[in-house]
């Protein structure tokens, strides 16, 4: 069976499950929405960045990234559920290459994450909180894809080394939340204590958030090319790591 057909089959399954579970869709978007609305409005009164950027405009692109981060990493959790329910065996015993399975699974989760991220993007557009410009929006989609694909691979890499979905809770607490909090989404990076500044700039998501800010006309710090290079490099690393670990996975 050819590689493309395997990818499509796995992708199609993700889509069917996604469309069937609208409640899960709403559930996974609740947290970023809460951050956006509550923090955005709550701090809005006394935050004005570089004279003309409101707090909700400041965190908006980061909230898109947050939604991508959460739903992408949860792709790894889905893999663990497949393992738990035995469905993973059905996939492994099929005459299909492991890389086809990995690519299909990744693409499926990236698609669903991008849909969720796009809901926030459209919401911000409707609310007039982002700059409406074709090049900027296309660039935003590129950043969104890279962020999502990188974290899906990272989630799969972690899931490959785990056996039960409960363990993934740890990843959630010790990886996903810190990565989000240290991404510079909620605070400007000027004048940070050195330790916090260091951690923020060691975090690949920081570059994704900054890139999205540039693309959507919010306040950014680094050149978009630097941001693009870092997040693309991160994507390459997690994809290689994820593939290597996934290949060794057994049912």
């Amino acid at each position: 069976m050819n590689f493309g057909a395997a990818v499509y089959t796995l992708w199609l399954r993700e889509m069917r499950r996604f469309l069937r579970n609208r409640s899960r869709l709403v559930g996974s978007m609740a947290m970023p929405a809460l951050f956006l609305l509550v923090l955005g409005s709550g701090f809005g009164g006394f935050f004005r960045y570089r004279n003309d950027v409101s707090y909700i405009q400041f965190i908006g692109p980061g909230i898109i990234a947050m939604s991508l981060l959460f739903s992408s990493m949860f792709g790894g959790l889905n893999l663990l559920w497949d393992k738990q329910f035995g469905f993973f065996k059905e996939i492994l015993v099929a005459p299909v290459s492991r890389m086809g399975i990995m690519a299909g699974k990744t693409l499926g989760t990236v698609t669903t994450s991008m849909i969720k991220g796009s809901v926030f993007l459209v919401g911000l557009m409707v609310a007039g909180l982002v700059r409406l410009e074709v090049f900027g929006l296309l660039l935003a989609l590129v950043f969104m894809f890279l962020i999502s694909a990188a974290f899906v691979s990272l989630g799969i890499a972690f899931a490959s080394r785990m056996n039960d979905p409960q363990g993934f809770q740890l990843v959630m607490s010790f990886l996903i939340m810190p990565v989000f909090f240290l991404s510079g989404t909620l605070y400007p990076t000027e004048g940070l204590p050195l330790w916090l500044w260091t951690l923020t700039y060691l975090n690949p998501l920081t570059y994704g958030v900054d890139g999205l800010r540039f693309a959507l006309g919010s306040a950014y710090n680094l050149s978009p090319l630097v941001n693009l290079a870092v997040i693309a490099a991160f994507w390459a690393v997690t994809t290689i790591a994820g593939s290597l670990l996934f290949r060794r996975m057994t049912a």
């Binding site: 395997a6 089959t9 579970n21 035995g86 099929a94």
Partner: peptide
């Protein structure tokens, strides 16, 4: 042990299998 996708229908499980086997 069971190895079906609970969230798909019976036909979809079979269709998925058919696709995987080309």
């Amino acid at each position: 042990d069971p190895s079906l996708d609970d969230e798909l229908t019976g036909r979809e499980n079979l269709d998925f299998h058919g696709r995987l086997y080309g």
